[in-house]
Structure formats: C-alpha cells, structure tokens
C-alpha cells in the first residue's frame, strides 16, 4: 500500500468521499439544529414586574424564559454584609457593586449553577440562599460560598422602567 504510487483512481475515490461527506453534513445539520430553541421560544424575551409592594427583606420569584428570577429588596445589613466580603474569600469573585447596581435591589436567576435546582431563600451558612439538591450555599449577593456549584447565580439583563417596574430581558 505505502510503496504504491497514487493513481488517478485514488484521486477519484478521495474526491468522491469528500463530496459525500459534505453532502452528509449538509443533510445532518438541519436535523441537529431543529432541536435548538425555536423562534417562538426565542420570542419570549422580556417580562415586566411590578415591585412596588416589596418591603426590605422580601423576595419575589417570577418566571422568565421558563426560569425563576429572584427579585430581592435587601435590608441595609444584607447590603453591608455583601459589600464587606473580601474578593479572595470568593469562589467566583464578583463585586456586589457590579451585581446590584442599585444596592437595595438584587435581581438574579434563581437557578443553582450546579445542576439547576431552585435555591431556598434565607437559608444556608451565609444568610442568602441554600440549594437543597446538593448543598450549595450562596451569600446575600447570590455569590457561591460553599458547595459544588462553580459560579455565582447569574444576573440577567434588567432595568427599572420606572420607580415601580423592573423589566427583565
């Protein structure tokens, strides 16, 4: 095989296989891509939430893109606690100032970054959230402090439309 010189026929074989492979890939791709989020799922982009009834220390959970979003109006102690943490103590270092632009309001996906359970409010060793599935502890800024989760709870894109309403997405 190795001492045989390539012939015209070898070239034809290789060219045929290459064209065949491209053809197969072109047919397979639509079959694979049909499983990705469709247009109607992508269209459910944003949700507006009235937060005027929340008192400090209250949390509401709303559904956005099928996922729970925590909106917490934090107390002064919780803000102080979140802002006093040293960066080197964090598993996934993020400043509370970057996570909550308006310190009183913490808006984040209520999804544990380990395997996607919904953490419980006001639980755990760091006065924030605790995930009952595999024991991840989050602090008052929703940052992972202990347990198997690798990242802080995600802060989605959101804005205050007016003083009472938050628009998520």
């Amino acid at each position: 095989m190795s001492d045989k010189k390539p012939e015209r026929r070898d070239f034809l074989f290789t060219a045929s296989y290459a064209v065949g492979a491209v053809g197969v890939a072109a047919v397979v791709w639509p079959l694979v891509d049909q499983m990705n989020p469709d247009a109607s799922v992508k269209a459910l982009a944003s949700t507006e939430v009235d937060v005027s009834s929340l008192k400090p220390g209250n949390t509401i959970t709303v559904l956005w893109r099928g996922k729970p979003v925590f909106i917490r109006r934090r107390t002064q102690e919780e803000i102080a606690e979140a802002r006093s943490v040293k960066m080197e103590d964090l598993i996934h270092p993020e400043k509370d100032e970057d996570r909550a632009k308006n310190p009183e309001w913490l808006v984040m996906l209520g999804v544990c970054t380990h395997l996607g359970c919904v953490p419980l409010n006001d639980k755990g060793d760091y006065d924030g959230w605790f995930c009952p599935c595999h024991g991840s502890h989050y602090d008052t800024s929703g940052r992972i402090r202990k347990g198997p989760a690798p990242w802080n709870m995600e802060v989605p894109k959101y804005e205050f439309v007016n003083a009472k309403t938050i628009k998520i997405g």
Partner: peptide, 24 residues
C-alpha cells in the same frame, strides 16, 4: 444540567437538549 459541566460548549449543549432555556 450534568452536560453543562463540559467546558466551553456545555451550556450550548444543554440549551440544545432542552430546545429552550429551561426544561419545557
């Protein structure tokens, strides 16, 4: 969500498996 542990492409694979942004 076990698949989200795969570096780089994990999140994309999970979205693909779900066909959305959550199990639905």
């Amino acid at each position: 969500n076990l698949f989200s542990a795969i570096p780089l492409v994990g999140e994309g694979i999970v979205t693909w498996l779900w066909g959305g942004y959550s199990v639905d």
